[in-house]
Design a protein around this nucleic acid. Structure first.
Lengths: 333, 333
DNA sequence: CTGTTAGCGCTTTCAG
DNA sequence: CTGAAAGCGCTAACAG
């Protein structure tokens, strides 16, 4: 071969030699310092500093069966919607010494089985999934292994293990209610084609009580989709009064297209988004949306996972974080 | 203790037993199938399927010193700017059997040392950093260990190891040139306070040749910051002709604030962003911005890293992916 | 409180 | 082409 193996890093043995104790004592000094005498502890501390020792978690994990990693499965990372969750999750895990291994499932459900098998090879201590696991094989596999799993951003009736989310159907109903309460009756929907958006649509239609003009675009939805959607919806129903959009990006697109057509919001057209992105309240006019505590979902998921990893009290297995319709100018009466 | 250890998964031994060969042969069948007879290969294949065997990469990595992981360090994951890079990086690594471990450094440079030490404990085969490593200690440590490092989104003169990015000063100059060429002279800047944005600002001012009204806001910048910024800039110079913004989110905020004040774009105020977010070309009016191939950066970084991991040809050590000012309506003459 | 003894599951190396 | 031996660096269990 050409190159030598990567250089060997210092090990517990090296530190032990410098400190003049057994390597096992060094291990204890690092992991359970309360079981080591203060004098020894100090010697070890200095030896660690002198050698620049960094533990090898691969080795530790092999023996202890705790890799101190959690796999995070997202549809694709470039969807802003879920970033607060990923961020909070990563931070919460990091605080406890766990790291996040990122996996992208794509919206087509195709990679799911392969990805989970790949990830299992890393022997993670848990899985956090944005959305639900849709592959029966994957669900079976995870259950069989008994690894903790938190599905998020939804409240499916039959989670693999734990779940923290909210009811998308309720969101749909609440949005419909919000619009109807303002006397808006000629409604329409611009929505992504993912499961959650479809659930919201179902709830929306249930509350409205009849079909409405609808444009469905492939997830992840974008501002461009929103512009196209409004064009399509106006073609179906020129006298449209309000549009519910399955994301704030979509809603923004609708607002842009409305502006381009000289339609005033909310006088000529009311708009409601979903997700309450950071920009929603700062648009002009400000955008009515549905606030979801994405960061809370991430923190909660981390805690549920770590509780279970620690073998602590049986953690909550199903957490509803709720949501809130935030009324702003775009749907003002 | 309360709970038993997690259940033991199948090992090479289990598969070997079923297949009626030695465990070493199974290992070869999986890793170097060309060195195993077709008949044996088939037996092993069936045994793997029957047992549902999933390799243990922790064990493999311990001996081989190749963990098949790469650490990705981002400022914070919730900045949309870098997502195409993270996405492409994750995908490119996954294709080669590598997974991405995510680390968030924050914009304050404080966590850098601690984070890198934490990550080193996982013995990654490489690091990809969005931005530059600023801690001298961290840089020294990484160099000492000899682990491949790719810094991205910038072209610093003294990278730790490899670098793929572009010149932010050149971007600043190009944007200034673009605005000046349109006869706009009363310019202003709304910018984030991160290193890269500051470099662009420096290039911008160099080309302009004199100071201009400037509002600096803490990264990551948002639409809300953009609105505030325009308000602040107009207070400094009511007859403003053009604003360069260090991100498209900021630029969008400037556009929103302009709309709220009844200013027409570009007639009353020209606006230029940076990053060419997906929404830039679909705004109304469409937003002039600076296109950077974020996904290319991710793919290129992955390739450089894996080339080096494979001990292949000395890979490129410095790649300039360039950029392009995309002129749109927001700066039309 | 400290040390010794066994591996964790795999890859490397060396023999057949 | 296949097998046996050794050990990666650490933790768990048991001894002192």
């Amino acid at each position: 071969m050409s190159l030598a193996q990567p250089p060997k890093a210092n090990t517990l043995h090296d530190v032990a030699q410098v400190a003049g104790v057994s390597f096992m004592t060094v291990s204890r000094a690092l992991n359970t310092p309360e079981r080591v005498s203060p004098a020894t502890l100090e010697k070890v501390r200095q030896a660690v500093a002198a050698t620049g020792y960094i533990p090898n978690l691969l080795a530790g994990g092999l023996k202890s069966r705790r890799s101190m990693t959690v796999v995070g499965l997202v549809p694709i990372i470039s969807v802003p919607q879920f970033l607060p969750t990923v961020r909070a999750l990563t931070e919460a895990l990091d605080e406890q010494g766990y790291q996040l291994i990122l996996g992208q499932m794509g919206y087509d459900h195709a990679r799911e089985d392969k990805l989970i098998t790949t990830m299992m090879a890393r022997r993670p201590d848990g899985f956090v999934v944005i959305g639900k696991l849709s592959s029966a094989a994957a669900r079976r596999q995870l259950r069989a292994v008994g690894v903790p799993v938190v599905e998020t951003w939804d409240l499916m009736p039959d989670p693999v293990d734990m779940v923290v989310g909210f009811s998308h159907e309720q969101v749909g109903r609440a949005v419909a209610e919000h619009l109807l309460a303002r006397g808006l009756t000629r409604l329409a929907v611009a929505t992504g084609d993912d499961d959650r958006a479809q659930s919201r649509l179902a709830g929306f239609l249930e509350r409205v009580g009849h079909a409405v003009p609808t444009v469905v675009n492939p997830a992840p939805s974008s501002l461009a989709h929103g512009r196209q959607a409004l064009a399509g919806l106006l073609a179906q129903e020129p006298r449209l009064q309000a549009v519910y959009c399955s994301s704030d990006a979509l809603a923004q697109g609708v607002m842009v297209e409305a502006a381009a057509r000289g339609l005033r919001i909310p006088q000529d057209l009311a708009v409601c988004g979903f997700g309450d992105a950071d920009f929603a309240e700062h648009l002009f006019p400000s955008l009515t949306s549905v606030r979801v505590e994405g960061a809370l979902i991430g923190r909660q998921a981390a805690q549920m996972l770590l509780d279970r990893c620690g073998g602590k009290r049986p953690p909550e297995t199903r957490v509803d974080v709720g949501f809130r319709v935030v009324a702003r100018q775009s749907t003002a009466a």
